[in-house]
Design a protein around this nucleic acid. Structure first.
Lengths: 153, 153
DNA sequence: TATTTTTGTTTGATATATCAAATAAATATG
DNA sequence: CATATTTATTTGATATATCAAACAAAAATA
């Protein structure tokens, strides 16, 4: 497909935003396939959340913000991960509204297995993309994100 | 957030792929909000599919490929759109396996109302992004997409 | 202190994503 | 021609997305 610059009416499928969707779906498909080879019963989202919790001592909603999850989604994903014995969920003693999330022993073993695969997925996806290109990509994406956010409310 | 180049272990949240997720979610949120103002009972995906069907005389799966939808998802989305009287669904006379999708009169009126809003959403999202940047973005994204696809196969 | 507001999380309802399995029609093959 | 294979779509099961409403605990206010 060719990116069209000079069109009076840009069709949905000729827009960069369409390309962004395409890319993220391709990447998620690759990730899920490779993650399933290592740990069959975990999803891409669960894997990401597991690693982010491991690196950040934060409440459930703070983790949700980090991984761009809705709080309702987060509740459900966390409950699934608790039932699979990847996470422990307890109420915060200081503030009983808050939820403490900790990684179980099983969760820690899973993280060890996952990390190399996640690194590999990134390397696969970004093969041949220079540091300069990544920086360009990052900056343009941030610009678009800010445009959207400042107009969403 | 700052994009980190020189880290031995890149955390999930410091990767461009994370930025891509962030951007697409912000854009979808903006789109849904503005589309709902014009047509309250339509989703971003349904709006996209309506317009793509309008511009392409193709079967259900071909449309699904165009909008990156799984065939199973497509079946369900189309059924919802039929029940809302946006689409008519009939079996192809030549090949009874295939599905013909046509826009209803209501669907056509909805498209007319949607188009300006969709154009506006794109303009909002891409404000201040030069043609050169869009081309860069497009090319980098295509590279990543191909990397992922050739490894998912 | 009693009441109101805010904060963190959950639940319900509906839409979409994904994989596997099922179906029916069309095509290929022996 | 009968059977096997392929193609287009559907269905089932489970995960996630999103909005609105509910809830309980904490904080602010009268």
């Amino acid at each position: 497909m060719i990116y069209q610059i000079n069109m009076k009416f840009k069709t949905p499928t000729s827009t960069v935003l369409y390309s962004i969707e395409e890319t993220i779906k391709a990447y998620r498909r690759l990730s899920q396939k490779n993650i399933s080879e290592v740990i069959p019963d975990i999803t891409v989202d669960q894997a990401l959340i597991l690693i982010v919790i491991n690196q950040n001592d934060k409440t459930q909603s703070e983790i949700a913000d980090l991984v761009f999850k809705d709080y309702a989604s987060m509740t459900r994903i966390v409950n699934l991960m608790v039932s699979k014995d990847y996470l422990d969920k307890t109420v915060d003693a200081e503030d009983k509204r808050k939820t403490k999330l900790t990684i179980t022993e099983k969760g820690k073993r899973v993280i060890k297995k996952l990390k190399p695969m996640i690194t590999k997925n990134r390397e696969t996806a970004l093969a041949g993309v220079s540091e300069e290109e990544m920086l360009q990509l990052f900056n343009i994406l941030q610009k678009i994100t800010k445009n959207c956010q400042s107009n969403t409310h």
